[in-house]
Nucleic acid binder design. Structure first.
Lengths: 112, 112
DNA sequence: TTTATTTTTGACAAAATTAGTCCAAAATAA
DNA sequence: TTATTTTGGACTAATTTTGTCAAAAATAAA
């Protein structure tokens, strides 16, 4: 399955579910949540945790990382969508991440 | 004052305060919070709201946007610092923001 | 049509997170 | 020393987030 870049996490898992012709009921059972919760997740009204993402990835044959990418990028995008300075925020954030990581590396060993 | 890119929001406002030789007490009064709250803000243990940012910008003669940039980029950076895929997250988020904005523009009018 | 099944929605309580204060201790300056 | 500033922990209140339930709405099957 080819992931569309601007597809939200919710849209993505809904499309996967529809592709497999599964009712919410079935997928919700795998995640161990109510159908209502999953319905909201597909509408981005509830957010997945790591466990949800792992189970969904397994179920739909996706890479865990790409599902996590979809979720994390959604979160950042919605946090910044109304900010006129979003572009700069992303660039500065990228630099800060590099800086944080460089600080946490002591003689090649990661420390957190 | 020249803003250092990898300086956190907390570090930034502390440096500004020290430059003006103001005790926490004075700045906290402007923000209408306890010195303890401001101390934590300078250590990034509490976060500023829009009002705090505006008052701090005015007090230190900074642009509101650059202060907000410092705060928002911190938030994104700390959310993604432990994610191996942070770079991709930033790129996809950028695309999603463009997409969200394009959806919200109807005949040149912003709709939210 | 009916009937069964799936999906959506709002209301709600529980859980989790965040914010701000108080106060005492620690650090610093006078 | 003494005064002032800064810090940190404990705590409560406020806010946000989560998941469920139950009923309504939508869709599919008989």
């Amino acid at each position: 399955m080819q992931i569309i870049q601007h597809e939200t996490f919710g849209e993505l898992i809904r499309h996967c579910r529809e592709e497999k012709n599964l009712p919410l009921r079935k997928v919700a059972a795998v995640l161990d949540v109510d159908t209502s919760t999953l319905s909201k997740m597909e509408k981005n009204l509830r957010h997945p945790n790591r466990e949800h993402i792992e189970k969904l990835a397994e179920l739909f044959g996706l890479n865990t990382e790409e599902l996590r990418l979809a979720f994390l990028s959604d979160r950042v995008a919605y946090q910044l969508a109304q900010e006129p300075i979003s572009e700069q925020v992303l660039r500065v954030a990228e630099e800060k991440i590099k800086y944080i990581r460089s600080k946490n590396i002591v003689q090649g060993v990661l420390e957190f």
